[in-house]
Design a protein around this nucleic acid. Structure first.
Lengths: 246, 246
DNA sequence: CGACAATTTGATCTGTCTCAACTATGGTGG
DNA sequence: CCACCATAGTTGAGACAGATCAAATTGTCG
């Protein structure tokens, strides 16, 4: 009986979102060779156009996918927390169509594509769990498209806060009391498709409405029910197994 | 040696985007039980909240995923053409977090989840091809997020036209001459996150710029190079094998 | 302390939305 | 066969959400 390292455990926990895996599958995951890297905040991990030979998952911290567009415009495409596998796609699509970067300081584990492929062939349950993970990722993309396409700035900013809080809480990373939004206003603007200035004003409005409170850049949620309502937030799209109540 | 039906062929062709499959895999696909349905335009196929027991793929016509939001707002999340498998996700995520509908009149083939699961377990190459397909789907979501988040209305509308044309052309469904955009202005507005009125004005502007021409609702592309430039369109994100030149 | 990054604020501008018609177009039933 | 109706497209006027520009303030870290 091998015991999984703390790093492997983050991955295993992620893949068990839909239900526990048999011990042989857990053992196979625990045996995965990892290259672990610590990364400062705001650093690129993979660039658009590159051709990675490893996949990675998040041990600690927050990552984001983003695209750089003509005229220096930038759009954040997704946020990734402990256990997420943000570039599984490089296994099947050789060239990166976007970049991957750290939002906060982070630790990331890299797994050679060969090892991932072998695992997928050998362990169908793990393959299923990876498929499920990819599909939840897609579901979050859909919600972001809807959010950016049709929600007002107030709803959009509130929605990102709700999503971030819900995901971090489901990982046991926050209590409601001390929730710290890991995004700067500039990052929030790139995630919501708004201008930096307008994000600031929107946060101010959320404060005025007594939905959030901000002390020294640490945002706390003052009224979780009303914040969700304001954001038009329904956590169904996250497909979380257990939705802990705060 | 069994010969695949025309319907099965659409699926097989899709899964061979990245390269041909061994004949045993093709045979397994050709043996898949299909329930085929003809659907008029603008009909719902699956609704948010439902729990499908089949997956489906497009034989002919165009489908879309969409979400209905508070206040009657609607956002189209993706478009699907011949060979696409728009609800593979229902295999792994029980409850639909969005709806699926026809954009044009369409024919759709339904495959029981059981048959899909058995196929994935039995045929690793097919499983890989399905994974790849799902990941291309994700890649398109990313481009839409970037488009809706950061592009101007002119770029956005032009971008949808470019994407639609490129995808239909790669399927051999159009020649440049007679390209007919399969979306009404209302659908275009739901896909781009713009208002109907503004989409109309944007199309007018594209016409004024001599990028497209519209005769009896049929849009032709007048200047493909300049249209792509205007749209900030780079087809890389579609991960198409062969990019036919018009 | 100095310097750089992040936040804050004010003023102004504009892209896009909303509202409210009107006009083709095509299909349907009397 | 035509009158009618629904659907899709067209147009104008005015309002407003959010962008842009410019500058000040605060925080942070070597």
């Amino acid at each position: 009986m091998s015991v999984a390292s703390p790093e492997h455990s983050r991955l295993i926990r992620q893949l068990e979102t839909a239900g526990p895996l048999p011990s042989e599958d857990r053992a196979a995951l625990a045996a995965l060779p990892l290259r672990i890297r610590s990364i400062a905040d705001g650093r690129d991990i993979l660039r658009e156009g590159s051709r990675p030979v490893e996949s990675c998952f998040v041990i600690d911290g927050v990552l984001c996918r983003y695209k750089l567009m003509s005229g220096g415009r930038r759009q954040i495409l997704s946020l990734h927390y402990t256990g997420d596998i943000p570039d599984l796609q490089s296994l099947y699509l050789k060239t990166m169509d976007h970049s991957l970067a750290s939002v906060t300081a982070a630790r990331v584990a890299f797994i050679p594509h060969e090892a991932m492929k072998a695992l997928i062939r050998a362990r169908p349950n793990v393959a299923d769990a990876l498929s499920r993970h990819t599909l939840v990722d897609s579901s979050i993309y859909r919600e972001w498209i809807a959010s950016i396409g049709r929600r007002t700035s107030l709803e959009r900013v509130a929605h990102v806060i709700c999503e971030c809080f819900t995901r971090m809480r489901s990982l046991g990373l926050v209590k409601q009391i001390d929730f710290r939004l890991p995004l700067s206003q500039a990052q929030l603007s790139d995630a919501t498709g708004l201008s930096l200035v307008h994000v600031h004003r929107t946060l101010k409005e959320l404060r005025r409405l007594r939905l959030i409170r901000t002390v020294a850049k640490v945002h706390s949620i003052l009224d979780w029910e009303l914040l969700q309502e304001t954001a038009d937030f329904d956590p169904g799209y996250l497909h979380l197994r257990r939705l802990a109540t705060p």
